[in-house]
Every structure is written in C-alpha cells, then in structure tokens.
Simulated scan of single mutants.
Amino acid sequence: MVNSIALIGGTHGNETSGIQLIRNWQDFGLPTRFDELNVSLNIANQAAIDANVRFIDEDLNRQFTFERLATPNNAKEALLAQTLNQKFGPKGESNTDFVIDIHNTTSAMGATLIILEADEFHISLARYVKHQMPEANILLEDEKPYLEHAYLCTTGKRGVMIEVGGQPQGVLREDVYLLTEAMAEAVLDFCVAFNNGTLATVQLPECEVFRLGENITFPLDEAGKRTAMIHHALQDKDFEPLLPGMPIFRTFDGHDITWQGESTTYPHFINEAAYFKLDVAFATAQRIVL
C-alpha cells in the first residue's frame, strides 16, 4: 500500500510548472478521484522561488546523501535539506511511502518520468504512465542504489521525479504545465490502482525505457574555455537516436564534431541551462524495454 504521498514543487525555484500545480491544487483541491489517497502538497524552496532562481547557495536536489545530511553546512539549501529530511524522511527510515518531485527542464524532453529503480513497483508504474500517456518518456537512473542518490525524492521509501520541458527558467508555458499536470495525475492514478489491487487485473504492455548512461561535456581548451556549442542537428532532439558519425558540436571556428560512440545512443538534457556552469552538454542513454 502507498499510504502517504508527498507531492513537491519548487525544489528548484525557477521551475514553475510544479510550483503552479501545487498552488492550484492547494487552492482548488485535488481531483476528487484522488480523495482516497493521503497526499500532502508541498513547496520545497520558497526563498529560491521568491528570488526566481534555481537555488540560493547550493542545489537543493543534490543535498540528500547520507554524507551531506550528516555534515555541518551553513548553506541555505543544506540547512533546508535537514528540515525536509525530517519532514519527509528521515532518509532510510522514512515515514513517507512515496515522494513525487516535480521539475522543469529547458531541454525538449517532453513529459519525462524519472525512476531510480527497476523493481516490480517502478516497472508497473512506468508501464502504467506510458499506457496513460503514450507521448511520455521514461528515464531510468539506476546507475547506483536508490539510497545513494542525492535527490530530495529519496527521502521517501520510494521516490520519483517528473521532468517536463522545454520551458525557459522562470516562466510558465501552458503546454508544459498541462503535460506536468497530466503526468502527475497519471502517477496518482497508478497509486489508486496499486492500492485497490486492480493492477493485477490489467495486462500492462512492456514499454520503452531509456537507461541513463553518462554525461557528455562540451569541448574545452587547455584553459578550460569552451570551444564549441551544440550542433543544430542535435538541438531539441532529446530521446531521438544519435548514431555514430552524426554531428553533436559545432566549433566556434566552424567545424563539426561528430558522435564517436560505438553504438547508437539516446541523448537527453540537451543544452540544459542548469548544467551550463558544469559544462555538461547532454546525457546519453540506452534504449531498453521493461
């Protein structure tokens, strides 16, 4: 049973769809079909929202490892993480069955559900959401055990992230908002079906899932200065196949750099603004079926 669900927006203060969805449901109520669920509606980082920035001092969504939670740190988000961990967790001994954290990306990823485990629950969730929303993408980040992730959602016994784009930071797009709302409702619909035992009577077909690979960084010179930008042929092609030899970067002196991987990959978070300072150009993924 999923007895307690925390729905969270505003983990990043300039990702507005989740913030607005939480506020709307606070003001107008959840759809009545979710009345049987115990759902709390939460805003994570109000200070960052007020400043319309991703974070004030440090990324809140990278604070939730056991090590960081146990290490004294006066950064605003580190202190906030302590409070949120007690509210939703504590991590590893959580009082919350399921944490659903809502995000936006500037990349053209559409409506993406990020799961951190490929167990029976999350495979069923992925299949259910994909069945409800054929346009949805499922991203599996199981490169490490669930509790080793630094994400806020891991304060729950189970946790997922909803990631919807592309949307510029600090603004609200209706189409992106509606996709966010639809995916949040699909996840809650799954919780209702899971609790009622009706999933066993439904044959959910296997679905396409993208398993996270590695981050690809921009080309840099010896001084650490960027020498290229995302190639126009790759821009906005999130989750589309990238074959060896296809262009990924255009250097500032006008030359193409091609994908040198040995096989086809599926790029995502392409040219994500939040990763600009980290020189991350995109992430790769393997296409699998679960």
Score class of each variant (00 low, 15 high):
248 I>K: 12
110 G>N: 04
206 E>F: 01
206 E>K: 10
228 A>L: 08
73 N>H: 06
135 E>T: 09
75 A>N: 01
96 T>A: 12
92 G>C: 09
50 D>S: 08
18 G>W: 07
190 F>Q: 05
113 L>F: 05
43 I>K: 04
118 A>M: 11
43 I>L: 13
115 I>L: 04
119 D>M: 03
123 I>R: 12
1 M>D: 15
48 A>R: 01
91 K>P: 07
157 K>P: 04
74 N>K: 01
63 Q>F: 00
185 E>D: 06
19 I>P: 00
235 Q>Y: 11
222 E>S: 14
62 R>W: 04
60 L>F: 12
84 L>Q: 07
29 G>T: 06
50 D>I: 15
108 A>P: 02
242 L>G: 05
229 M>E: 14
66 F>G: 04
113 L>H: 04
236 D>Y: 11
125 L>T: 03
77 E>K: 00
267 P>I: 04
211 R>Q: 13
279 D>P: 00
190 F>T: 00
125 L>I: 05
63 Q>A: 05
176 V>I: 14
273 A>C: 06
29 G>F: 13
97 D>F: 12
92 G>F: 01
101 D>M: 01
166 G>W: 06
269 F>L: 13
42 N>K: 08
258 T>L: 08
62 R>H: 10
214 E>F: 09
271 N>K: 15
26 Q>M: 10
219 P>F: 12
59 D>I: 00
236 D>H: 11
72 P>K: 03
52 N>P: 07
190 F>M: 01
47 A>I: 00
62 R>P: 04
271 N>A: 15
24 N>I: 02
22 I>F: 08
62 R>D: 11
106 T>R: 03
135 E>S: 09
55 F>S: 00
175 D>Q: 10
27 D>P: 01
76 K>F: 00
13 G>I: 10
283 A>L: 11
281 A>Y: 03
204 L>R: 14
87 K>V: 09
189 D>G: 01
51 A>Y: 07
263 S>M: 02
157 K>S: 08
196 N>E: 10
236 D>R: 14
67 E>Q: 14
156 G>M: 11
36 E>A: 12
251 T>P: 09
53 V>K: 14
191 C>M: 15
211 R>Y: 01
129 V>E: 03
23 R>L: 13
138 I>S: 00
142 D>Q: 08
287 R>I: 03
80 L>C: 11
255 H>M: 15
36 E>Q: 12
218 F>K: 10
78 A>V: 00
265 T>I: 12
213 G>M: 04
87 K>E: 15
27 D>H: 13
162 I>C: 03
154 T>W: 05
12 H>C: 02
202 V>H: 05
178 L>F: 02
95 N>R: 13
147 L>S: 05
152 L>R: 02
68 R>Y: 02
37 L>K: 11
60 L>Y: 06
172 L>Q: 02
77 E>G: 02
88 F>G: 01
235 Q>M: 13
270 I>K: 07
42 N>H: 14
15 E>R: 01
242 L>M: 10
